[in-house]
Structure formats: structure tokens, C-alpha cells
């Protein structure tokens, strides 16, 4: 698989610390460079301002600001951003909403390392 040569900055958003750490640890896409994580939508927007990430993994059920709203705000600020929603919410209406607001992929929890990497690879493929 040919990846874009330039490194892309990855931000992880999830209210669970262990999920954040797991995504950081398990992702093996060479072109991704982890730059930080946030525990809710508000933190994510703050981190976005200082680090300007290119790729985001986004939980949906979070305190403060939920993921769907955060997706919309991130896309408004940076249309080229690529967002993979990683959520336990398995209903289709939620996926439709997240993607309609600008997310580029949807991965349902629980997930294996391989599913995570496949989803990230697909996310970057046509970018």
C-alpha cells in the first residue's frame, strides 16, 4: 500500500484513558505521527488549536461536548481533516449523522488492533 509520504498528525479523542492509550499504542500506520489526545470535545478543540492535527479518532459518547458536535466543529475549521469515529453506538442513524457532519469512517467498539489499522488505512487511502 502506498501511503502519502508526508507525516500526518494524529489526535485521539476518547473519554477513556485506556482506549486513548490503546489506540496510540496499536496504530501502526507509518505516516501517522501521534501528537496528543483529548478526553472530550472541548479538550479536543483546544488541542486542535495548538497542534493542527490532520487525522482524528473520535469517540461519540463523552462528557462536556459529544463527538458528533466535535466532528462538525473540527471539519468547519479544517475541511481537509480526516476523522475516524470510534464508538460503541452501533445504530446506523448515529453513523449516518456522524458521517453527514463530516466524519470519514466509522469503527464500532470493541475493535481489534487489526480492525483499527485497517480502518485508519482506509481513512487515509483516498485522501
Amino acid at each position: 500500500m502506498v501511503m502519502p509520504p508526508a507525516t500526518l498528525k494524529l489526535m485521539i479523542v476518547d473519554d477513556s484513558n485506556i482506549i486513548r492509550r490503546r489506540i496510540e499504542r496499536s496504530q501502526q500506520i507509518d505516516s501517522l505521527d501521534f501528537i496528543g489526545s483529548a478526553a472530550n470535545g472541548v479538550e479536543a478543540l483546544e488541542l486542535f488549536e495548538t497542534t493542527d492535527p490532520d487525522v482524528v479518532t473520535m469517540d461519540l459518547t463523552m462528557p462536556e461536548m459529544d463527538g458528533v458536535e466535535c466532528v462538525e466543529r473540527l471539519v468547519a475549521r479544517k475541511p481537509s481533516i480526516r476523522i475516524l469515529v470510534i464508538s460503541a453506538l452501533a445504530d446506523k442513524a448515529t453513523a449516518v449523522e456522524a458521517i453527514a457532519r463530516g466524519a470519514n469512517g466509522f469503527l464500532c467498539k470493541p475493535f481489534t488492533d487489526r480492525q483499527l489499522n485497517d480502518a485508519l488505512a482506509e481513512l487515509l487511502q483516498d485522501g
Binding site: I19, A88, L89, A90
Partner: peptide
């Protein structure tokens, strides 16, 4: 918490939004 959240969230597949 994450396990409880995942189990409940997955249930939306059947219960709906």
C-alpha cells in the same frame, strides 16, 4: 466503565437511536 459503555452502546444496533 468502558465495558459497560460498549455493551450498552452496541445494544443500539437492536434498540435503535
Amino acid at each position: 466503565g468502558e465495558v459497560a459503555n460498549t455493551i450498552s452502546g452496541n445494544a443500539r444496533r437492536d434498540f435503535g437511536r
